[in-house]
Design a protein around this nucleic acid. Structure first.
Lengths: 146, 146
DNA sequence: CAAGCACTTTACGTTAACGTCAACGTCGTC
DNA sequence: GACGACGTTGACGTTAACGTAAAGTGCTTG
């Protein structure tokens, strides 16, 4: 199983034929509010590798998940290069050698540290926002009273 | 009081002359692990406005705090322009009109939403990391057993 | 006083992450 | 069969956030 495969649909295989298996580039773009250009760029950078029917790109669930993870990573300030590194290592995992795996664990620990700092940053930033908001409301009230 | 002033040093005014009041650009740069170039750039972008002694910049506690907030904002993915907007509005607060203040509250609410999404992103990302790490350790163990 | 060090301005260079054309192919449909 | 919507590949443009190099100022230290 790959990191980018559909989330374990519990065995209730109902009447849906197989879920809406594929997407066009435009569909994906609208889903995630990015442009097709962005998606092609991510492919060029090695983050996606959609199937082709002739010239046309066909995206499967796997690709959609990858894109989702990529965009999440971006929101957290990772560069595309960093994201690709993790994806590549993950995909190479089954037959990866010990050195590679340990390198992957290092990278993960690194990201984890990053996450921790971000959590702290967010907490601090939220306090600042609280503070600024309080003062602003204060001033507003005084303006209203005059 | 400004957002960028020293954190209320409780009245224990001991033997320290007045705290290490000022900093050179190089000192600040080392403190925050950025280059002087970066600090000058932030000034050029309106995020800092240090005093001058002749040509030379003199940074006070106020400037240090601003820089700290700026860098924190950056780690959270805000652009310098966004950060400047908040700082400017904050500084203009005392004599800001109601419209400006309400705009500021809007911006703050916006940042808050952003923070919330980031928190969620971090939680999700941490789960992914957990997952990937587990699998990696798994594979490593098997390699060891052979 | 010469050397060295930290600071200054000016200005051009660089990188990441796309945006923006241009020029073309391929459907479905009216 | 023309038209519009959508897709494709180049190739060049753009923006943010600095890096880097050149050329000069100012102190203090041997």
């Amino acid at each position: 199983m790959s990191i980018t495969e559909p989330e374990a649909t519990t065995a209730v295989n109902g009447s849906l034929p197989q879920q809406r298996r594929t997407y066009s580039i435009g569909e994906l773009a609208r889903m995630f509010e990015v442009t097709p250009r962005t998606i092609r760029f991510y492919e060029q950078e090695g983050l996606l590798a959609p199937e082709r029917r002739g010239q046309t790109r066909i995206y499967h669930e796997k690709d959609r998940v990858r894109l989702k993870l990529t965009l999440r990573g971006k929101r957290l300030g990772f560069s595309l290069a960093e994201i690709r590194e993790v994806i590549e290592m993950y995909d190479a995992m089954p037959d990866g050698n010990a050195r590679q795996l340990k390198r992957l664990l290092e990278i993960l620990a690194d990201k984890r540290t990053n996450m921790e700092r971000q959590l702290e940053d967010i907490r601090l930033m939220q306090r600042e926002l609280d503070d600024v908001e309080m003062r602003a409301r204060d001033v507003l009230e005084r303006l209203d009273q005059e």
